[in-house]
Simulated scan of single mutants.
Amino acid sequence: MPSLYDYRLFISHAWKYGDDYTRLVNLLDNAKNFSYYNYSAPKEKPLFPVGTPLTNSDIAKKITDKISPSQITIVIAGMYVQYKDWIQYEIDESKRMGKPILGIKPYGNVITPTYVSNNANEIVNWSTDSIVSAIRRLVK
């Protein structure tokens, strides 16, 4: 049997909303016939060590470095209101680099923020099949 293709994903997230991120990663980990590499900064290996003085410029560069090798950016739309500036930056950088953007409506949400819906190549509901199928369609 041939090996699976490893999709290279950047998942936009904020640790305050870590449960949604963790749920999404678990969903992708358990998806049948789907393999991926996660370019996001995991909680156990943050962009910067604790106590490092941060500037917005430093953070932006690190985020750009994470998006660069990915093939697609995934945005959990429910995080948008709290982290609008950084999520807009991630969306804008992804577009600048020609990366498709997949918006995911959090479970139970009906409304998707306008900035996400206007910039996403596709928006899907919170289900393994719809997310994995959209990744496969958008990554060429």
Rank of each mutant, 00 (worst) to 15 (best):
A14R: 02
W15T: 07
K16G: 12
K16L: 15
D19P: 03
D20H: 12
D20C: 08
Y21W: 11
T22E: 12
T22W: 12
T22H: 15
L24E: 00
V25P: 02
L27Q: 05
L27N: 05
L27A: 06
D29G: 11
D29A: 12
D29S: 11
D29Q: 12
N30Y: 13
K32A: 14
K32C: 08
F34E: 05
S35E: 11
Y37R: 12
Y37I: 15
Y37D: 00
N38I: 04
N38A: 00
N38W: 08
Y39Q: 05
Y39P: 00
Y39D: 03
A41R: 02
P42H: 03
P42F: 05
P42C: 01
K43V: 10
K45W: 09
L47W: 10
F48N: 00
G51Y: 02
T52M: 05
L54W: 09
L54K: 10
L54V: 09
T55Q: 01
N56L: 12
D58V: 01
D58K: 13
I59D: 03
I59H: 02
K62T: 03
I63P: 00
I63L: 14
T64N: 00
K66P: 00
K66R: 13
K66G: 04
I67C: 01
P69H: 10
S70H: 06
I72Q: 03
I72P: 02
T73H: 07
V75F: 06
V75I: 15
I76N: 01
I76K: 01
A77T: 04
A77R: 04
G78T: 10
G78I: 07
Y80M: 02
Q82G: 15
Q82I: 06
K84P: 00
D85Y: 08
D85F: 09
D85M: 07
W86L: 01
W86Q: 00
I87H: 02
I87E: 01
I87Y: 03
Y89C: 05
E90I: 01
E90A: 02
I91M: 15
S94C: 12
S94I: 06
K95T: 11
K95A: 07
R96E: 09
R96A: 12
M97Y: 04
M97H: 05
G98V: 06
P100H: 14
P100K: 11
P100M: 13
I104F: 02
K105F: 11
K105R: 15
K105I: 13
P106R: 15
Y107S: 10
N109F: 15
N109I: 06
V110Q: 13
I111T: 14
T112R: 09
V116E: 06
V116S: 07
S117A: 14
S117M: 13
N119F: 10
A120H: 02
A120T: 05
A120N: 03
N121C: 06
N121D: 15
E122K: 14
I123P: 01
I123A: 04
V124A: 02
